[in-house]
C-alpha cells in the first residue's frame, strides 16, 4: 500500500492550535470558529443544493471545490484581479459540475435505489479530480492570497481578520442570492419542483435533466468559494478540502440535508464547536474533527432530519 504522497489532515489542526500567536482568549477562538464556520457553510450550501435537486450526497463535492480553487489560482497567478479570478473559477466549477452530472451521475437513476452505485461514482470522481489536479498543478502546495487581505481590526480587544469578516459577508450574499433564486425566479421554481416530484414536473413541461445539471453546476460554483476561503490558511494542495468536506457534511447533517438556513446555522455551529472544544478538552486537542464526527453520529441517530430539514428527507 502506497500512502497518498501527502498528509491529508495536518494543516487544519495546525491552523487552529499552532500557527500564529497562541490563542488564549475565548472570543478570539470564537472568531476563528465563526470564520471557519462560514467556509463550512459555503461547502454545505453546495451539498444542500445537490441534495435538494437530486437527493444525492455528493462525496466528490470537496474535490470539485479544490479543483475549481486551482482554476482561481491559475487566473490569479496570471495577474487577473482576485474577484475576476474567483468568477472564472466559479464558472469553471459550474461547467465541470454540469459535465459531471451529464456524464457520470444522471445515468445512474434514483440515488436512493442504488446507493452503492452513487457512492462508487462520486468516489470515482473524487479520485479522478484529485488525480487530475495533481497532474495539472503538481503536488507542491500553491499560495493563494487571502481575498480580503491579511490586515485585521480590533473590536473590544478582540482582533478580527478582515478575511473572516469577508467570509461571513460573502456567505450571506450567497444565501441571499440563493433565496431570491428559489423564491422569485422561474428557474428556481422549476428546480424546487423537480426536487419534490420530478415525474410530475416533467409532465408540466419542466426539463428535469437541465434542472439537475444546473443544480450540480451551481453547487460546484458555490463550493469554489469555500475553497477560496480555505486555501490561504491551509495551503492550496490537492487535499485542500478533504477535512472541510467532513465539516461541511456535519453542517448539513445538523441543519437538515435540504435546508439552506440549516447549512448556514450548521456551518457556524460546527465551526465554533471544532475550534472551541479542542481548546478546552485536551483529548480532542489534535482532532478538531472529532466533535464534528460525534455531532454527525448523534444527529443521524436521534434526529435524522436535523434542525431545519423536512421530515420526508429523513430516509435514514
Amino acid at each position: 500500500m502506497r500512502p497518498s504522497r501527502k498528509r491529508i489532515w495536518g494543516s487544519d489542526a495546525k491552523s487552529l492550535s499552532g500557527r500564529g500567536p497562541p490563542v488564549n482568549n475565548f472570543l478570539e477562538i470564537l472568531v476563528v470558529g465563526i470564520g471557519n464556520g462560514a467556509t463550512y457553510a459555503m461547502l454545505g450550501l453546495g451539498l444542500v443544493v445537490i441534495y435538494r435537486s437530486t437527493g444525492l450526497l455528493n462525496f466528490a463535492s470537496g474535490e470539485l471545490a479544490m479543483f475549481s480553487t486551482f482554476i482561481v489560482w491559475t487566473f490569479w497567478n496570471l495577474g487577473f484581479p482576485m474577484w475576476l479570478a474567483i468568477l472564472g473559477g466559479m464558472l469553471g466549477g459550474f461547467l465541470i459540475g454540469v459535465l459531471v452530472h451529464k456524464v457520470a451521475v444522471s445515468p445512474l437513476g434514483d440515488p436512493h435505489e442504488r446507493p452503492l452505485a452513487v457512492v462508487i461514482v462520486t468516489i470515482g470522481l473524487f479520485l479522478g479530480l484529485n488525480g487530475a489536479a495533481q497532474l495539472i498543478w503538481g503536488t507542491v502546495d500553491k499560495r493563494l492570497d487571502p481575498w480580503f487581505g491579511v490586515s485585521q481590526i480590533t473590536v473590544g480587544g478582540v482582533a478580527i481578520a478582515w478575511q473572516k469578516i469577508g467570509a461571513v459577508v460573502v456567505l450571506f450574499v450567497m444565501v441571499l442570492l440563493l433565496w431570491a433564486l428559489f423564491k422569485f425566479t422561474k428557474v428556481g421554481l422549476s428546480m424546487r419542483a423537480v426536487a419534490s416530484n420530478s415525474e410530475s414536473s416533467a409532465l408540466c413541461g419542466v426539463s428535469v435533466q437541465n434542472m439537475l445539471m444546473l443544480g450540480w453546476g451551481m453547487a460546484a460554483g458555490i463550493g469554489t468559494l469555500a475553497g477560496v476561503f480555505s486555501a490561504p490558511n491551509l495551503g492550496l494542495g490537492t487535499n485542500l478540502m478533504q477535512l472541510t468536506l467532513v465539516f461541511g457534511f456535519a453542517a448539513i447533517v445538523l441543519g437538515g440535508f435540504d435546508s439552506i438556513l440549516g447549512a448556514v446555522v450548521g456551518g457556524f455551529v460546527v465551526g465554533i464547536l471544532s475550534s472551541v472544544v479542542p481548546q478546552y478538552i485536551t483529548v480532542f486537542e489534535k482532532m478538531p474533527l472529532a466533535p464534528a464526527f460525534i455531532l454527525i453520529l448523534a444527529v443521524l441517530l436521534f434526529r435524522p432530519q436535523g434542525l431545519f430539514g423536512s421530515k420526508d428527507v429523513a430516509r435514514v
Binding site: 422561474k186 419542483a193 416530484n197 409532465l203
Partner: peptide
Amino acid sequence: RGTINALSVVDNLRVGGIS
C-alpha cells in the same frame, strides 16, 4: 394526483404554467 408536495398551491399552479 402527482401534486408537487413541497410546493404551495400557488407554486404548483405556476409550475403548471411553466411551459
